[in-house]
Amino acid sequence: MANVTVTIDSRKVTVPSGTFVIEAAKKVGIEIPALCYDPNLEVVGACRLCLVEIEGSRKLQTACSTKVWDGMVVYTQSERVINARKEILQLLLDNHPNDCLTCQKAGECLLQKYAYEYDVKFREHNGARRPALMDTSSPYILKDDSKCILCGKCVRTCAQVADRQVLTFANRGFDTRIVADSNFTLEESSCVSCNRCVTVCPVGALVDKRLLGKGRVWEYEIKETKCKVCDYGCNFEILSKDGKNVAVRAKAPSNGRPLCLKGRLTTEFIYLDEPYTPYKKENGKFKETTWKEALGIEDIIEKLLDKEEISTGVEYNG
């Protein structure tokens, strides 16, 4: 594909034609804020935060869905752009609980980050707010609708695995919500707790329940590891605090890596000093289970024990 040269905030950059403005900007170190954009997901242009001004275009354009052309001149920080972004952030904050003090996502939340950058604050008002619906049914995922900004990343990432496609939009307009299947709880739904949605959620609407209360993101030391369960080799992070591994969390499922519960539990079991109780979904109910069963190695262990190839002194949490 032919290359084109564009000018972004008076910096010139040459990229292949067909590149989106947001990616071209990244190349010259300009970060355009975006809540719904993810290079691994279908472009939807929903959050409108990445609006930029393009010379010759009367309307503001979203950098995530506008392709560069040769000679394009882009302004990502003009007054008009900044004002639009501030207004959009304000609209989001007006409908978002002021819970940053105790929110698990604090420190990593994109809404928090941009609100700080653009100096937009929570404010009192008597208008409507998203209902405070919280789905606590899953031992793995906490879904807090009141914090959802409806970027739809969770829906898109869930849809990428053909046999999952659990999450979807329901209702419309201001009442739009993300639901599992036909508005079931995560427990009742066909959710397999792969946590893809958790990894892409930019705010605290979908969080890994096993991380709750374990520490703040800035306290962790983070090590990356690859899952050893199958050939995909999905990426996980081992979070340690005060020299102790306290949690394992999935990294975003890029390059076709699907993520799965078994892989995450296995990684947890391998790395955590004190792995938490595993749960298994059976007939739409989460049940406490043994590690042998959770990792699907009952047969192997029995056979190994039969053959007396493992020493009798081994202790495992099962």
């Binding site: 207004e87 409806l150 307009g173």
Partner: peptide, 20 residues
Amino acid sequence: VAESCGKCVPCREGTKRMLE
């Protein structure tokens, strides 16, 4: 407001505030 699809922030949130 009743017919907004709810996809983008300005329409979903903004029209509601305007109506209020």
